[in-house]
């Protein structure tokens, strides 16, 4: 699958933030990322537009899913030697706590990278890393 020029140059520069900015859906969610040496933490700043349940209020479960899926995809792209766009095959998402109306963070672990299929695990939290709000597992196929 073809990559846009913007994505290709972000990949070559190893610039996560530029890669995120090149994806319209990621801009809609407002997600960002920070790197600490080799560690990468994705961040979803609180936003009224991302809310679901108005009573708590809480972030829409689908937004948490989209944020985790997008983060998994970006971290997988960055781990590739040649620029390829991963295509998602399946996605399992466990909601552990309500995602409250505040900043959300996540980090990704590439559990297995085969020739064509990759398995990524994502963990999301808000106040404390020790209290995850969601975990996800995704398979991607690399074209």
């Amino acid at each position: 699958m073809s990559l846009s020029g913007e994505m290709r140059s972000a990949l070559q520069a190893g610039d996560y933030q530029a890669l995120i900015r090149a994806v319209p859906y990621a801009r809609t969610l407002g997600m960002e990322c920070e790197t600490f040496g080799e560690e990468v933490v994705f961040r979803l700043p609180r936003s009224d537009d991302n809310l679901g349940n108005p009573i708590l209020p809480a972030i829409h479960g689908g937004v948490i899913g989209g944020f985790l899926e997008m983060s998994a995809m970006i971290s997988l792209m960055m781990s590739q030697e040649t620029p390829r766009l991963p295509r998602i095959v399946d996605f399992s998402l466990d909601y552990l706590r309500a995602g409250l109306d505040r900043d959300t963070f996540c980090e990704c672990h590439l559990t297995r990278q085969g020739n064509r299929v990759a398995n990524v695990i994502v963990t999301a939290w808000q106040q404390s890393r020790r209290k995850p709000i969601a975990t996800a597992r995704a398979h991607f196929i690399m074209d």
Partner: peptide, 8 residues
Amino acid sequence: IHGGAITT
């Protein structure tokens, strides 16, 4: 369309 929007 991004998979995340389909998930939502």
